[in-house]
Design a protein around this nucleic acid. Sequence first.
DNA 1: ACGGAGGATGTTTTT
DNA 2: CATCCTCCGT
Length: 705
Amino acid sequence: MKDLLAGLNPSQKEAVTWPPVRPLLILAGAGSGKTRILTHRIAYLIEHGVPAFTILGVTFTNKAAQEMRSRIERLVAQRVWISTFHSTCLRILRQDGPAMELDRNFIIYDEYDQLQVIKECVAELKLDEKKVNPKAVREEISRAKDFLISPEQYLAKAMDLFQDSVGKVYKLYETRMMRLKACDFGDLILKTVVLFDRHPEVLKAWQDRFQHILIDEYQDTNHAQYRLVKLLASARHQITVVGDPDQSIYAWRGADIKNILNFEKDYPDAGAIRMEQNYRSTPVILEAANHLIRNNQMRRPKALWTEQKGGAKIDLYNAEDESAEAKYVVGNVMKYKGQGRTFADQVIFYRVHAQSRVMEEELMRANIPYKIVGGTRFYDRKEIKDVIAYLRVVAYPHDEVSLKRVINVPTRGIGKKALETLQAAAQGRTWDEVLQGLSTVEGLTPKVQKSLSSFYAWITKLRNKQCEMTVHEILERVLEDTGYVTALEAERTPEAQARLENIEEFYSVIEDFNETADQRLEIVEDGAESAPAEMAQSPLAAFLDSIELVTNLDAWDQGTNVLTLMTLHTAKGLEFPIVYMVGLEEGIFPHVNSFAGPSEEIEEERRLCYVGMTRAREKIHLSYATTRRMYGATHQNLPSRFLTEIPAGLCDARATFSRGSYRDEDDDQDSVSRSVCDADPDPDPIIEFDDDPPAPDRSRDRYSR
DNA sequence: ACGGAGGATGTTTTT
DNA sequence: CATCCTCCGT
């Protein structure tokens, strides 16, 4: 026990040792050691007689979950159920979904799959895709689910024609998803809440299972997640939540900051502990971040502090255009490299993925190894989606979306006409049933008939054998029998080559899955383990589950010596010695879309900026470009308002690199700075730095169009 | 049925 | 700028 408390400050100690039977709110500022506190608290509970299998830990990403799990294992050599809301709900539904007529073998539909279903619904309702944009509908439906709003409730509240259409699509979408035995991401949470609401006995069982609940990043929970937590915790009130309202960056996704602000109302016997001492960054960085975030009106005052002294000033650079900005970053990356820092010590944050491309070009030119986290996810690539669709067709006969995707890939003579005929023949039945009774379908040419029936026979054979085969073997069969690989090889283009490599890579995803099989064993009682409900399915179905909820961050390994690029959203929870934040321009960051809405949206952008800055341990580089080409058009953006909100005294606006050269120019600082000034006839920054942040109305005047 | 060309379209952030 | 979609020639 002494180990667990060693080196903790008083408030950290209080948080770790807070009575397990009382609710606890930990308001943990950035870099205040919140992961450490959570893991130590869980370890502390276990050391004080709480059985490990009665603890539930919820994190924001799978990566964080994995990290926390292994830290706890190191502390107390016990395995604890730590995962995301989505993975947790998936397990609950796999086990108890049948109680509410949810097929145990439901399939998870991602955004792409959702969109396919929505498009069909829009078409069936004879709505105009131009007016009822499927992607917009998807957003609306997802948001409705975040707030536990049913189609009927949505329709009742529809204010205009668009919402009315959305409501109708939503309704049809739900019946369709039911028939497809499919759940989208929102369903995982929503259906679990419904399950608990309707079946007290099921809820009771899970309350007994999860007697102690700890939630990380509580400021970013949405209403559905809030209800879920409340249901689970209602029996015992043994709940600990950790969060930081200043780091709430997912309101656009339904996150409700009130969840954390009202925690003490929800649990009147709750204690609250604030942790504002920062162990990560220099005072310069913290002061800048504190100043920035003070501009948010709707916020409780808070300021991070540190015992550290000194620290390098924030480097601010005004680039001519986006490629000059990239050169600035690359120049500095090499400078630090020359000083003995690694590439992995440094990270580039941007607001939108589209900004990564210029950076990439410059990094390639300089031969700097880099890794982009996010962007087009590995699993979003066409070939990977194809391959997964094949696997899903084998595992889930009811997965029509996947079937439609691969039925003619590679081409086997099934064209538009044939698909229409099948659709017409379906009449509410699934395509699987249609294919079963293929001979009765009228209007297909003999050639198509033959092609379809041999395709279906092949699928059926694979389905029947899937339990005796490894996932690897099934994939091999698919790729060989369909001629998918052969077709790509025949193309003989670099693109096809890249696709083949990605498919090779997919094999290693399967290997990873096999190697980590023991980690998915469920902890049923002290020491005992058993395969969880979803493992009772075929290995293939279990594998598909495991890849469905992974995020782009999960595959990222901070250890390897490469420079990392990512969006600010992905950056949450991470830390780096040296941070570059690029594109600090009005319209980019804060993003244009935040201008029109209520001021909360700008405040969320500001929190995002705050999150980015507080990732840095030693040094921040901020940059903006005077002109920027994006989405094919050139824009002239004003410097970001956030730059004016950082005190000038903390910034060094002179660039310390040499243009057009990636060499370490360290012993040549003076001439380097001069060369930059020479190139810039007007060395005065465009932005005026005030020691006091500008009044909000003034800054709005200045930047609004 | 298929594949290419060309046009329209929409572009934030993600579990 | 890139993706999706449609239309047209084969």
